[in-house]
């Protein structure tokens, strides 16, 4: 067993997942490539969204990849940190909004 579950070198091996299931792997990477092409959103905007999502799913590979991609597409540190704060706001908000449910229950149970 390896010392660590995550190894930085594994990011470069992402494409190797095709080895065990080529057809689905190909479909995924074709789709993935097309998602990140310039469209209604610029590549920079997509990189920042991916960076925010990477923090939400807490994937170290994705954080590595989309920090680089954000830098390469011309995002500033300020924009990148704002993206992470969007993640934080949504994650925190998702917990806090359940406080309403708690309040409802408190009111249901209280005299």
């Amino acid at each position: 067993m390896d010392e660590s579950y995550y190894k930085t070198g594994d990011l470069k091996k992402f494409g190797n997942v095709r080895e065990f299931q080529e057809k689905l792997g190909d479909k995924f990477f074709d789709y993935y490539g097309e998602v990140f092409e310039e469209g209604a959103l610029t590549k920079r905007e997509k990189a920042l969204i991916a960076l925010a999502v990477a923090h939400a799913v807490q994937c170290p590979y994705c954080i590595d990849a989309y920090t680089t991609e954000s830098l390469e597409t011309g995002a500033s540190e300020e924009q990148m940190m704002e993206a992470v704060h969007v993640t934080t706001a949504i994650r925190g908000g998702a917990s806090l909004v359940h406080g309403v449910q708690m309040m409802n229950k408190v009111k249901d149970l209280s005299i």
Partner: peptide
């Protein structure tokens, strides 16, 4: 890291 798309930057 490498420079991205010149027009976008």
């Amino acid at each position: 890291f490498l420079p991205g798309d010149q027009t976008e930057i």
